[in-house]
């Protein structure tokens, strides 16, 4: 029983990891071998695909863009989101309930659906030629889940926290950043991971808004590259895919325990 279970287990794991192997082996194959031996181990280890990918495919540009979009969104979402969550959970504002309902609307509206008006809005605001053109809408769409999660988290905290600093006479901003912020940090980490997963892979909006090559994130740039290569040189395609995935894979290998904790904390906190 134990043995069959382990075999089954190994099979499942292989299914999940097979594409990684495929990308890796394909990226060392030349054009001919890619078609003749698409799934085996490469017969000759040819690094030509990588050098060609690096010269033809603007990997560093796209990577930098993805990084800017994702980190920009994370910073803005966490700042604005945690402040609103704090306001809603701890401050006496008569519109607290309404605001909470209002913001939860954001959980339902899929970003894909408002692409057309959003696109015209960004154009009208002259943000199309800037990183903010994607960061701001991404933030708008990430806020709902961030606020709701932090709201739930903050409500469980004892009031004494603020009372102590209230007596010290610190103002509300100092108090928020010195006392509340460190306490909600674990929840913020969770949120950043969630936002990262969403934004790093976001495609539909970026496809339309970041139409200029120099502003494209990896997802869109990679597709553009496939189109230009004409999807016949699989070795080159695999090399470019591997290059694009490498940063995420490395981050994941280093911090996967943390990422798992963060991701799954989301499920429980809600």
């Amino acid at each position: 029983m134990k043995a069959t279970m382990s075999v089954f287990w190994l099979a499942v794991v292989c299914t999940f990891l097979f594409p990684l192997y495929w990308m890796l082996s394909m990226s060392f194959k030349n054009k001919g071998e890619a078609y003749d031996n698409p799934f085996g181990i490469p017969q000759s280890w040819d690094v030509l695909n990588f050098s060609e990918a690096l010269s033809k495919y603007h990997f560093f540009v796209y990577f930098k863009n993805s990084l800017i979009y994702t980190s920009g969104t994370i910073v803005l979402t966490l700042m604005a989101g945690s402040m609103l969550a704090y306001c809603l959970s701890r401050m006496s504002w008569k519109l607290n309930g309404t605001a909470l309902i209002y913001i939860s609307l954001g959980l339902i509206v899929p970003i894909e659906v408002v692409v057309i008006p959003l696109f015209q809005l960004i154009k009208g605001l002259h943000l199309k030629e800037s990183y903010l053109g994607l960061i701001l809408p991404y933030t708008g769409f990430s806020l709902a889940s961030c606020v709701l999660m932090l709201y739930a988290f903050l409500r469980t905290l004892p009031k004494e926290l603020e009372e102590a600093s209230c007596i010290d006479g610190t103002n509300v901003y100092q108090m928020f950043f010195r006392i509340i912020f460190p306490i909600v940090l674990p929840a913020l980490v969770t949120q950043s991971v969630l936002v990262f997963m969403r934004i790093w892979n976001e495609f539909p909006l970026a496809f339309i808004i970041a139409s200029k090559d120099q502003f494209r994130p990896l997802t869109v740039g990679l597709l553009g590259f496939f189109v230009n290569v004409g999807v016949s040189d699989w070795g080159l395609i695999a090399a470019s895919m591997l290059l694009s995935s490498l940063p995420t894979i490395i981050v994941y290998l280093i911090g996967n325990e943390k990422i798992e904790q963060a991701l799954t904390a989301g499920a429980i906190l809600k």
Binding site: G230, S232, D233
Partner: peptide
């Protein structure tokens, strides 16, 4: 696609 179809003929 265009590229792969060309490839199939030339190869």
């Amino acid at each position: 696609d265009y590229g792969p179809s060309n490839e199939m003929f030339t190869s």
